[in-house]
Each structure stands twice: as C-alpha cells, then as structure tokens.
Amino acid sequence: MEKFITRRDLLKRTALMAVGSTVFLSRPLSAWAWADAAKSKVVLIRNRQLFGGGDQPDPAIAAQMLDEAVTTLTGKKDAREAWASIVKPTDIVGVKTNVWNKFPTPEIMNTLLKERVLQAGVSDENLSVNDRGVKNDPIFQKSTALINVRPMRTHAWSGVGSCIKNYIMFSPQPSSYHDDSCASLATLYDLPIVKGKTRLHILVLFKPLFHHRTAQDASEEYMWTYSGLIAGFDPVAVDSVGLRIIQGKRNAFFQEDRPLNPPAKHIELAETRYHLGVADPSKIELVKLGWDEETFV
C-alpha cells in the first residue's frame, strides 16, 4: 500500500540532498521503486541558431535537430536507419500533437514528423496528425504506432503539460483524470487505443512556457528561447528532464525557489505508482547535444 509522504519523510531519507533542489523535494515520494531497472535514454538537443533572430524556427535546423536526436536515441548510424527502426512501412501511424491555440506544437514539428514517417515507407493514407479528434480518427483507431509530440509548458492543475499529459484526449472523459491534481495521468497509457503503441516521444522546448498567471495564460513574458528538443522512448523520463529544465528556469527567473503550483506529481507517480517509466534522474541516461549554456539540467 502506498504511504502518504510528508516533507519530513523526504528529509529523513535524503538528509544529504541539497535542500534547494526544489524539484526533488517538491516531489511527493522519494522512494524510487526501480532501483535495479535499466536506465532510460533521453536525448536533449539544442541549437542556438534555431530562431536566427526571428520569431519562427528555421525548418532546416529543426529537421537537423530532430534527426540528430532520433539517431542518437536509437544508436543507428544515420537518420534514415533511425527512422526505419521507429516505424515500419506496414505501420498505421498516429502523430498525437497538441493544438491548444495559445501554445500549440510548432507546425514545423508536425510537418517534419509526417515527412519522416512517410520517408520510412508508411503510406499517406495510413498516417494522421491529430489532437482533439484522436478518438474518432480512423487512423488512430486502427493505429499500430503512435508518435507523441507536444510543447512543454506549465499547467494550472497538473503542474506541467508535457508528454504524459498529452494523451488525455484519448480518454472518453478527460476530466476523470483531474482528481488529486491529475495524479493518475500515467494510466492513460493503459487505454486500448494507446497501450503498447508509442514509438517515440518528442517534447518541444523551442520556447517553453515556465510560468502562468491564470489557467488561460501563455504570455511571451514567461517563455524563453531555449531552442531545444527532448526525445525518448520513455514518456516519464522525457517529462522528468523537461520538468527539471522548467524548474531551473523558474528559480533563475524569480531568483528564489519557485516550485510549480501545484507540483507535477503525476510525473513521479508515473514511476512509483504506475510503473510507466522512470522519473528518477539517476535512472535516466541523459545525452546532451549542442548548445550547452543555461541548460538547467
């Protein structure tokens, strides 16, 4: 049975941990369950030239970042082989994007993922990019493979909106996941339309949103040009890395420990309660590529 945890419990268990590392002391549990599990590989790639002084990401640089991230993640010799290892020509592929009008997945990422899936031999009629219509999309309904892509942002009830949460539109009743600040989001991955299908998670941190004033807020004042992508096979590990980056930026911006409100507990619980993946940084093999200033992780 899961034990309720207080800050004091964490302090007793992690007496040597730096007190200021809010993202970990903010977590509800510290007893990471998978002490012997293999590490989850996550690739963080950044390119300082992505925006080139403009408002829009350079498509060629975004493509280069995506290919390099996927090649490194898969350990293949080039992008073609890497994508071939992710989807097969016979796959029916749904790209789960995010269309929230204030902070959508950058269109270039949807375009690039479609291109790469098609280049891997999947036919156009077996490919769909969708968000709010996934449940009624015939491609998603009969999909054999999913690719999960969305931007990283803070969220007024779940702490952050990232890869785990991006599957909430697969639920017949999304609000049924809201209890206890969305603690059970990881169970979305047990839905039949999703289970066992996801081949790749891409968390987009081109200009992440690290703070909001109200639930509807996505002000440029609280975005920064991070020019990054996080790629992985484990949504929990991907989100864990993204969470640390957001927390690092918050602390730097506000010049004090500024925990997410509420804490993004669903990421840690995805490991400790639901065993979807690993959130513990010590269980994540993080490969960092490219621009390394103010990486926050």
Binding site: S26, R27, P259
Partner: peptide
C-alpha cells in the same frame, strides 16, 4: 492541493 504551492509539505 494548494498546500504545496510554495513549499512541498505533504502529498
């Protein structure tokens, strides 16, 4: 839920 807004106290 808001008990942890500034500082993690309990889950």
């Amino acid at each position: 839920i808001w008990l942890n807004a500034y500082f993690f106290i309990a889950n």
